[in-house]
């Protein structure tokens, strides 16, 4: 049996150059650095590798980083959906301003965000001075890490959910109402399933950003070993001590974790989208 050639006669030109460029670009920008990471890690022996990545201080940092990133992405999924809903469904004065505001965490240099957040949440800051007397310490605790990650992750959810929400026909909600569904049933059974793939994408992006975030977190985290130290900070610390192999070893583990998380989200997404493709 003859195999079909990849390039069939098509009206879209430039299959060769575009595919070639895509492969080259991805190799150069993504694959090459990542393989360098693995190669560098491989200079460690297996026991050395385990000792580095499973050190108590490192394990604690995984927990803080991934835990806070998951929580932040979860909160963003909820409130990002809400923001997107308001932006799409209601016409209110200053809507365009709110819309622009959503993108600010994207644009702000992370260090600026970090310094601002820590000054607001510090004991003498605007919010910190209200919260701390009530026993809620945000700055220099894991809670602060969570706050920073929430801040930088919000646009991801809003910007992925918004277009999908805009495309949803109002008719399906009317149809649900005619069939006797109340608002909650309509949301839960008609709207949410339609939004879920986009919501999961937003969640995954926000999570990935949170895990990789450095600049805005280190100012507010307090960076206490075993308590509020994030993994990227540990990597920097190792680098500063010229322990390149150790740094890349931790990075490799992070990469693996992140990859697994994203894979899971992707599978969930595929499942929630099972109706569309067929």
């Amino acid at each position: 049996m003859a195999t079909k050639p990849i390039t069939r006669n098509t009206v879209i030109p430039g299959f060769g150059p575009t595919l070639g460029y895509t492969v080259f670009y991805l190799s150069l920008i993504v694959l090459l650095p990542l393989s360098a990471l693995v190669v560098k890690t491989a200079s460690l022996t297996w026991p050395e590798f385990i000792a580095t990545v499973a050190a108590p201080r490192v394990v604690a940092s995984y927990k803080v980083t991934f835990g806070a990133a998951l929580a932040a992405a979860g909160v963003n999924a909820l409130f990002g959906l809400l923001v997107a809903w308001v932006l799409v469904r209601y016409s209110l004065p200053g809507k365009r301003l709110i819309d622009a505001l959503v993108d600010l965490p994207f644009a702000l240099p992370t260090a600026v965000a970090g310094i601002t957040l820590s000054s607001v949440y510090a004991a003498n800051g605007w919010l910190g001075s209200i919260l701390e007397p009530r026993g809620i310490k945000v700055a220099f605790t894991p809670l602060g890490i969570f706050v920073a990650m929430t801040f930088i992750g919000l646009p991801f959810v809003v910007r992925t959910v918004q277009p999908v929400l805009e495309e949803l026909e109002e008719e399906i909600e009317e149809a649900a109402a005619c069939l006797g569904a109340n608002r909650w049933q309509t949301f839960r059974r008609v709207l949410l399933p339609e939004l879920l793939p986009a919501l999961l994408t937003g969640f995954a992006l926000a999570f990935a950003r949170g895990v990789g975030e450095y600049g805005s977190i280190i100012f507010i985290a307090g960076n206490m070993p075993m308590v509020s130290e994030i993994t990227p900070l540990l990597i920097i610390t190792k680098l500063e001590q010229y322990d390149y192999a150790g740094a890349t070893a931790i990075a490799t583990v992070m990469l693996l974790f992140s990859f697994l998380m994203l894979l899971t989200v992707n599978l969930l997404q595929k499942w929630s989208r099972r109706h569309a493709a067929r």
């Binding site: 026909e169 399906i172 149809a175 649900a176 109402a177 069939l179 109340n182 059974r189 339609e194």
Partner: peptide, 28 residues
Amino acid sequence: VRERQVGFVFQHYALFRHMTVEENVAFG
């Protein structure tokens, strides 16, 4: 509209895309 007990058929069907035919019909 919920309490009027009307059946409404839309020009563009307005079916629930993520539900099977059976689930769509059973929705009400």
